[in-house]
Computed example of a mutant assay.
Amino acid sequence: MTSENPWTLYWQSGNLYSCIASQDAKDQTYIDEFWAEFAKGMAQGAQLLDLASGNGAVPVALLAANTSLSISAVDLADIAPERLAEKFDTLGEVQFFPETDICDLPFDDARFDGVTSQFGLEYAPQSLALREAARVLKPGAPMRLLLHHNESGIVRPAETVIAEIEALTRPDGLIEHLKRFVREQGELRDLEAAGRDYLDDPAGKSKHISGQIMAGISRVIDDRQSFPERALALASGMEQRLVAESVRLSQLRSAALDEASASLLQMAAIEAGFGSVSIDEQFVGDQDPALVGWALHALRL
C-alpha cells in the first residue's frame, strides 16, 4: 500500500499524457489541435500559465503551434518532466513549479496573458482555483479549460480498470498469491492457477494493466531463487502501483462533471471575475467522434 500522491507516482513513471478518449492514437492529435488554436491566437512572446500541468502535455502542444510563448506550469504532484526532455525538447523551455497548489499560486497579480488547463482544475476546489486564475490574469486575457465529462470516453472505462485492480489486489487475488510465492509461503502451481483464473475471468481487462502484471510476474519468478529481495521489492512495487492507479482513477471519476456541475462551474467562473464564459461538450475525431470532455472558454474582466 502507499500513502504517496498517486499522481506523483504516475508522473514519475515518465508519462506525458494522463488521459485519451479512446484507443484511437489520433485522439491526442485532435486534443493538440484544440490547444494549437488557442496558441495561435496569442501574441508573440505572450506569457501563459498552465494549471495542473502534469509533465507538460499542454505546454508541448502550445509551443508546437507558437514557439514564441513563455509558459509557466504548476502541479500539486512532484512531477518529472525532465524524464521526457529527450523526446519532447520544448519541455526545456517551460518553467515548471512542482508541488504547487493551483489555489495558492506563487505569482503576482495580473502576471499572465492567458491560462490553460487540461483535466486538472476540476480536481481542485473549483471556486478557489478560478479566483486564483483570475487574480494572476491580465484584464481581457483568455482562459481555456478542458475538463472531465462524466460520460466521456476517458471516464467511463475507468470503472472497468478500478474493478480489475480490486480483483487483482483482494486478499485471495493474484497479487497476494505472488507475494506468498516470493516469501516461499506458496507454490508456483498456486500462483499459476491464480494467473489462469485472472486471465479466464470474463470481467473486462485493460491491456496496460494485464500486460504489465503478467510481465512483472515473469520477472519475479525469474528473480526468486537468485535475487529474492529484488523479487519481493518488485512484487510489492506492483501492488503499490496498482493501488495508486486505482486511487488516481477514482479521483478522476469523482472529478468528472455532469451537465449540472458544468453549469455550476460556469457560474463559479463568472463569480470569480470572468466574462464571456461558455462551456460546451468537446468531441475528438472525424468519423464516430468521441466525447472527450467539457471545453470552457472565458475572458478575465
Rank of each mutant, 00 (worst) to 15 (best):
G92Q: 12
I31N: 05
P98W: 15
K87W: 01
D75Y: 01
D78T: 15
Q47G: 07
A57Y: 01
I71F: 10
D32K: 04
L63H: 04
L63P: 00
G92P: 08
Y17R: 06
Q95P: 02
D27Y: 10
L63F: 08
W35K: 08
D32F: 15
L69M: 04
I79A: 01
I71D: 04
F38N: 04
I102L: 12
Q95N: 09
L63M: 09
L69P: 00
G45Y: 08
R83C: 01
K87A: 03
A43D: 12
N55Q: 05
E37Q: 09
D50Q: 05
A65Y: 13
I71K: 03
Y30E: 12
K87I: 06
Q12N: 08
D101R: 15
L48N: 03
M42Y: 03
S13C: 07
C19I: 14
A21G: 15
E37C: 02
K40N: 05
E86K: 13
Q44D: 07
T90R: 07
E99S: 13
I20T: 13
I79Q: 02
S70A: 07
T67W: 07
A85W: 06
G92D: 06
E86S: 07
L51Y: 02
A39Q: 08
A80L: 14
L91V: 14
V58W: 00
G54L: 03
K26F: 13
S18V: 02
V94F: 12
G56I: 06
V58R: 00
Q44G: 06
A36E: 11
F88Q: 07
E37R: 14
A46C: 07
C103M: 12
F96G: 04
